[in-house]
Design a protein around this nucleic acid. Sequence first.
DNA 1: TCTAGGATTGAGACCGGACTCACATCGATT
DNA 2: AATCGATGTGAGTCCGGTCTCAATCCTAGA
Lengths: 369, 369
Amino acid sequence: MSSDGSRRRDVTVADVAKAAQVSKAQAARALGNYGAVSEDVRERVLAAAEELSYRPNELARSMNTGKSNTIGVVVGDIENPHFGLATRGITDTAKKSGFNVILVNTDENTAAEVEAVRVLLDKRVDGLIVAPASSVETEHLQRVHDSGRPLVLLDRTAGGLDVETIAVDMARISYESTLYLLEAGHRRIAFISTLKAEAPYGEGIQLDSSQISDRLDGMRRAFAESGLAFAEDLVRLNAGDAESVRRITREVLLMRDPATAVVASDGLIALSVVEAIQELGLSVPAEVSFLMYDDFAWTRLTTPPLTVIAQPVYDMGVAAAEALIRQIEGRPPLAPAPEFSATLVRRGSVGAVPVAADPPGEPVAVQAM
Amino acid sequence: MSSDGSRRRDVTVADVAKAAQVSKAQAARALGNYGAVSEDVRERVLAAAEELSYRPNELARSMNTGKSNTIGVVVGDIENPHFGLATRGITDTAKKSGFNVILVNTDENTAAEVEAVRVLLDKRVDGLIVAPASSVETEHLQRVHDSGRPLVLLDRTAGGLDVETIAVDMARISYESTLYLLEAGHRRIAFISTLKAEAPYGEGIQLDSSQISDRLDGMRRAFAESGLAFAEDLVRLNAGDAESVRRITREVLLMRDPATAVVASDGLIALSVVEAIQELGLSVPAEVSFLMYDDFAWTRLTTPPLTVIAQPVYDMGVAAAEALIRQIEGRPPLAPAPEFSATLVRRGSVGAVPVAADPPGEPVAVQAM
DNA sequence: TCTAGGATTGAGACCGGACTCACATCGATT
DNA sequence: AATCGATGTGAGTCCGGTCTCAATCCTAGA
């Protein structure tokens, strides 16, 4: 490949030492900036290094320092701007402390996550930041933690795992925003998520994602405190790809006693939901109200601008990286753990329940069945 | 940190060997699946490894195989979905061939890029994929190439560097879409980009980005072939942050003889441009036409949906990773180099030039100055 | 029964740095 | 002038694997 002959061996300390006429040990000291080195030797070594354009082999260095200055980040989907931003927060912070980031995508697939964690550990990363695909299958994370390797969870908690976690209080914001919808008169509120689940949603069902179950708990509580029954039939999980999101959206909007408000579980789903609403020719918020998680810039550009639940994603990435680095360096966790909260950004996509719709109290009751 | 005492040393082949009562060499062979090992030994070793939950140290392995099974990816901004998608293409492909990805963000800063490349090389990545921040300062990439390390450029070419490059033909698509705008009657077409430049734009000026200069060349050619003068005063570079993009947009739209069409150089800028247009209360496309690079999903959701230049970003990521891996494995580059072309997706944001505007030929000419 | 040749096996070198240890050197102290 | 602590310095070990090499085992063919 290279212009000059075969497999160019890299320059090593030994080479530099020879060129500088000193022992390998002295050269290493001068280059590594440790131990005692006379000015004379230091200069000769540095000059020789420069001359040979020596570069240390970080692998070798890592091997006997036990530190790789690398952290592993495992997320479900970098394509999702949510994680894109978080990743940015992580890498920015990591760089500041001299760490590099190995990024692994799991497609929200637990098996892939287990494998990713294994590989990263094999590569001897100094620590891991994981957005767990499952809040249930967490043995692999438990093992990491048990082995004493620094670990920080991002975005989601992992069942019963006592690990530092950077996440927002989903139950609270979900509760608040559901109240907001209820106050606007909505009773039929659909919640659409890609979360995979075996059975259709029902109370007490074990969900794989702490985020989603917290959100549903929040909704449930809001309904309960308002003395209303939570419409479980409008909780739609398993919304896999864009097409299935569209289908589900049509479903909840066209069914008998349809949803008057739709909540999209994340920014990616939101795209398809909005598209489906547009395709149905329904106007927002006059005919349907819409609410989504994640405040992406484009949500201000639609007509009407979308009402969203904003999460401090970048800052959470920063916090996760900081927490991890703190662990790596053996410093105690931040005194009062940083709190992150999502906020409801009221823009224009949530309105009063349409008057044409059945009044929430008394169903119009015509058809026998 | 760990529950059981201090710094838990990892299990090594030596430990496994001892437990299995064989020599380190034999254990290594059984574990590494190379050389000749009797069935009996293999079983004992594997059992012992399982028992001790042995995991190989990839650093050590890399050190004497010379392969780290890791590739470095250097991009300007992962936060930009353009790179998010490309990165996804890269990681997906890399994973398939057993490679991991170390991701570094440069903020489109050349100094950061130089540093990133250096660090990645020090870590002995098997190859690099770089979206060069500059098409001019490329010595660091030249060095990588000279040293014989696999390198693939993504998205942008690097001045005179003979390196495999995965990019679309920007001049062509820019030419085509400019023709499209010209046919719609536009003569005052603004082009807004974040690209940093010392001097305001003018013909023959040396730009730091091959992408942008190709686009401008394309525009220039379209104007020239139509027998029209290219409005250089509407080429606005240095559109740094969102605020400055908005300011520039207002400027070109409110100036005397204002722009009738605005082209946004990427999906991030586009957000601010559209926002500024909305703030001015101008309607698209009746009063201003709008065109942007990158086809993000949300561009279909605005009113009107936006006309965009779609680039096969994911596929380019895949191609870049494939090309790199091919190089790493010493295979020859793909016979006919894969071609990628952008396409103009006509949606609703480009329309005829407004009748109210000054006719392109004769300026209304009232004020003396 | 003897032997050639392949299968096994263990000792030890090696990858490229970091670091320990024992042995100089040297100016300063008394 | 003898002594002491603070540098300087080189030889060699170690990290945790891979891999070479020579020695040992076995088994089929003569």
